[in-house]
Design a binder for these strands. Structure first.
Length: 823
RNA sequence: GCCGACGUGGCGGAAUGGUAUACGCGUCUGUCUCAAAAACAGAUUCUGAAAGGAUUGAGGGUUCGAGUCCCUCUGUCGGCACCA
């Protein structure tokens, strides 16, 4: 009999990590006969260290991947690095090193940490977005967008972060008007920018056909995209003696007879033209002031309405009325057509504006049962439904019909049309920074904007540059980079010095994992068809709009270009929660509540940290990291180690069936059922609780006779398999110690027999009027009559019935009997 | 302001309309030890000597029976917010 061994994680974890690595057991082969399962996690930014959030995210996602592998899938679970971006550049400026060196050494460190988790990463598929063999294809993709008119350059007011010294996409400006990265207040700046025409896919992006995503995420994307149905109506004006038309967008064409003024956004191209000479100074001042405003100031809803009369007029095409043209910053250039008709009676914003500037408020819709009243006495706009009044030929029309009737009318008259607008604006991808993929465009004095020919890719980012303290991109001063030859005429030309938003890199990395080493193509059609789309994607909800929306856009655009054959990149999406410090606050150095996962791996084991992360609570809820709570998981793993290793050295295995062995067998089946269902639904916390319960039972019985039965041995075998996805090292080691030759992770997931999950007896709960009065152990075969008899004659129950009349006995088979009595 | 989710022991949390508080942490008691740690055994929602009573943010409703379903309120969190 061998002596008892102690759980020694240091030794076994490095032993198995090395073995898995050298034997490449987690590489997903392209030619497996098994069905594929693409298990993806959002790739990390190489900040230098894997933090608690990474462990939380990746432990569970890996457990799921391991579970699916044991269920017979060819699981592809890749890992890579989203390696371009500002932190590298800032570190370079601060420390006088190269961004590339900083990034690559961080990656090196994080690879080690990722290995120490014991996850089944497919390292052969690793991608690093800042390396030329990756960003070559990011550039290639940009060129495809350009070729299909989905990338364009324009001079427009852009969100500018004065701290990061670069433009930002709308999605990167937080709701409070600050920079997503650094929290600085974003201002607007007019410069030439490259944009991707995501708005062309607004309608399709609103739909989520055939995918299982959290409702919340879908709603967030739909709100972000927005959609308003209405009409574009052209108002007439006269400029320099010429008849001109200015369109407005409205969702309420039925209220057009109530339009008493007209408003242009301050940035509207017609502002200068329509402004009367006498008003020019005032208008110019207002426009300038609006431009200077930060996003915060402009977005404040508390703000009182402001505006300036331009001195110009337009004519309402329906009633021929001449109304004043104003400019006001509550009208946004980026929505609709940047111009509105002001209907103060039935729109609260227009109401406030009209009140402030003394403009007429004219009622054109009256709610049913509403007494006629003077709009001048109103305190707010009347937005309820009703029937049209003061609306010429439309008087008396219920406004439920009026929208359609007026729209039809203006279409027939040729003064407007039905129109849908979206809130979603095009994606600004230019960044005035160095550490990103160069935009593959050349500017030639003769040929203008010329895309870099595909065979000249990649446009290499210089690897050794002089950083500037201001954060200004060093690229524009890199003469070798800047000056080039025009691909069209061969003459001298300059390169675009802006680089691409890092979200460009991450919008397609999941495609590259399918075919990561392909030097000829971004991916081959075969690899694409074999692996994509992603079956399960796990990542934080903070990317609900940014990365997840961009990736969907890429997928749809690339499908239309013929490069992909599916509509959605991520079939099933799961958001893990956020892990907080023990004080309930976000972990941060300034708060001093940061905990390093590495120190807990050293103190306990990787398996302990993994299991603890899964045990904190529901995976989508996140939770607080409390170091002391790891003790519980650590004790569990030790007890598990001891009970398995000891029971397997004990000899004399009996195959005799006893009451005790049958009970163990039943619990084994119940546990398989619970764990299988829980892990399938990402409920790792309750799966672990079930395993702990089973283990507690095995521990309790390890000195009993039953510990020498085949059932008991089978139970510990099942425990190893069920725990394997969660704690891969300890189970692998025990599996080997107990004489198995194959890896536990390569075994088939245990199955259960439904009949075996039911006990022979159950605890019958006896209630009187819904209150529990007694519990009796009875056989499951018991009949209702027997239950009634037991319930009504039970000595402990009797006093609660007393002299009252028993009205009925509700019996729920297998559970309880409720005696209903009335006095 | 609008929309959505949530509120359970000292703590993290568990509960197909059917035994509330599983599992774990912490705490207390005990065993072992010169002692401590570890490990092991037991206790641990509140109240009560016990029988019992009360208890899932507050109040109401549906039901034989409600943490779970419905209504009102309240608190916390998340999203949106001058989008015509």
């Amino acid at each position: 009999m061998s002596t008892r061994t102690k759980y020694n994680p240091k030794e076994i974890e490095s032993k198995w990590q090395t073995r898995w690595d050298t034997e490449q057991v987690y590489h997903a082969p392209d030619d497996s006969p098994k069905p594929k399962f693409y298990n993806l996690v959002m790739l990390p930014y190489p900040s230098g260290d894997l933090h608690m959030g990474h462990w939380y995210h990746y432990s569970s996602a890996d457990a799921y991947g391991r579970f699916m592998a044991m269920r017979g899938y060819n699981v592809m679970q890749p890992m890579g690095f989203d390696a371009f971006g500002l932190p590298a550049e800032n570190a370079a400026i601060k420390r006088g090193i190269q961004a590339r060196d900083w990034t690559l050494s961080n990656i090196e460190n994080m690879r080690k940490q990722l290995r120490a988790m014991g996850a089944r990463w497919d390292w052969q598929r690793e991608i690093v977005s800042c390396l030329p063999d990756y960003y070559k294809w990011t550039q290639w993709l940009f060129l495809q967008f350009y070729k299909h008119n989905l990338a364009y350059r324009t001079k427009a007011p852009a969100n500018w972060c004065p701290n990061c010294n670069t433009t930002l996409a709308n999605e990167q400006v937080l709701p409070n008007g600050t920079c997503e990265r650094c929290g600085t207040v974003v201002i607007r700046k007019e410069i030439d920018q490259w944009l991707l025409k995501i708005s062309a896919y607004a309608e399709e992006l609103r739909h989520f056909k055939g995918i299982e995503w959290p409702e919340k995420t879908i709603t967030m994307q739909q709100n972000w995209i927005g959609r308003s149905e209405g009409a574009e109506i052209r108002f007439m004006t006269e400029i320099d003696g010429k008849q001109e038309e200015i369109p407005v967008f409205t969702t309420r064409p039925d209220t057009i007879f109530g339009a008493t003024f007209f408003v242009l956004a301050p940035e509207h191209p017609w502002v200068a033209k329509i402004t009367a000479p006498g008003q020019q100074a005032e208008v110019a001042a207002y426009v300038e002031q609006a431009q200077r405003m930060t996003e915060i100031e402009r977005m404040s809803t508390e703000k009182e309405k402001t505006g300036v009369f331009t001195g110009g007029y337009v004519i309402n095409p329906l009633n021929g009325e001449k109304i004043q043209v104003w400019i006001a910053d509550y009208v946004l250039m980026g929505y609709g057509v940047g111009a509105i008709m002001g209907v103060p009676a039935h729109d609260q914003r227009d109401f406030e504006f009209a009140r402030k500037f003394g403009i007429e408020i004219r009622e054109v819709i009256r709610a049913e049962n509403e007494e006629p009243s003077d709009p001048a006495t109103w305190t707010e706009a009347h937005v309820n439904m009703g029937v049209l009044v003061n609306s010429g030929p439309f008087d008396g029309t219920p406004d439920s019909e009026a929208i359609q009737r007026v729209t039809k009318h203006i279409e027939e008259q040729g003064i407007g049309k039905y129109m849908v607008t979206y809130r979603l604006r095009d994606w600004l991808v230019s960044r005035q920074r160095y550490w990103g993929a160069p935009i593959p465009i050349i500017y030639c004095p003769k040929d203008g904007t010329v895309p870099v020919p595909e065979e000249q890719l990649p446009v290499r980012l210089p690897e050794h540059v002089q950083f500037r303290a201001t954060g200004e991109s060093p690229l524009r001063y890199e003469e070798d980079f800047l000056h080039t030859i025009c691909p069209t005429c061969g003459g001298p030309a300059t390169r675009e010095v802006d680089t691409m938003d890092t979200f460009m890199d991450s919008s397609w990395y999941y495609l590259r994992y399918a075919d990561p080493q392909n030097g000829e193509q971004a991916w081959s059609p075969e690899a694409m068809k074999r692996w994509l789309p992603v079956d399960q994607y796990t990542g934080g909800i903070e990317h609900a709009i940014l990365h997840l929306l961009y990736s969907r856009f890429f997928t749809k655009a690339l499908r239309d270009m013929g490069h992909l054959t599916f509509d959605e990149p991520f079939t099933r999406l799961f958001h893990q929660g956020m892990i907080l410090g023990a004080d309930g606050q976000k972990m941060s150095k300034s708060r001093g509540n940061v905990e390093s996962p590495d120190s807990y791996v050293t103190k306990y084991s990787a398996d302990t940290v993994r299991c603890y992360m899964m045990f904190i609570g529901p995976f989508d809820a996140g939770g607080l990291f409390k170091g002391e709570n790891l003790e519980g998981v650590w004790r569990f793993l030790n007890r598990f180690w001891n009970v398995v290793s000891e029971s397997w050295v004990a000899g004399n295995i009996s195959t005799e069936q006893t009451t005790a062995s049958k009970a163990i067998e039943q619990m084994r089946h119940k546990t398989i059922k619970r764990v299988t269902e829980d892990v399938s639904h990402f409920r790792f916390n309750t799966a672990l609780a079930a395993l702990m319960e089973f283990n507690n039972v095995l521990v309790k019985q390890q000195n009993e006779v039953v510990a020498h039965t085949a059932s008991y041995r089978k139970a510990s075998e099942t425990m190893m398999q069920l725990l394997a996805p969660l704690a891969p090292h300890i189970t692998e080691e025990l599996w080997e110690i107990t004489g198995h030759t194959q890896s536990v992770h390569a075994t088939e997931w245990p199955t259960f027999d439904e009949a075996m999950t039911h006990d022979d007896t159950f605890t019958l709960v006896i209630q009187v009027n819904g209150k529990v009065r007694e519990r009796v152990e009875v056989p499951t075969t018991i009949t209702e009559d027997e239950v009634r008899k037991i319930a009504l004659t039970n000595a402990k129950v009797a006093p609660f019935i007393g002299d009252s009349t028993v009205q009925k006995v509700v019996y729920i088979p297998g559970r309880l009997a409720n005696i209903v009595v009335r006095n």
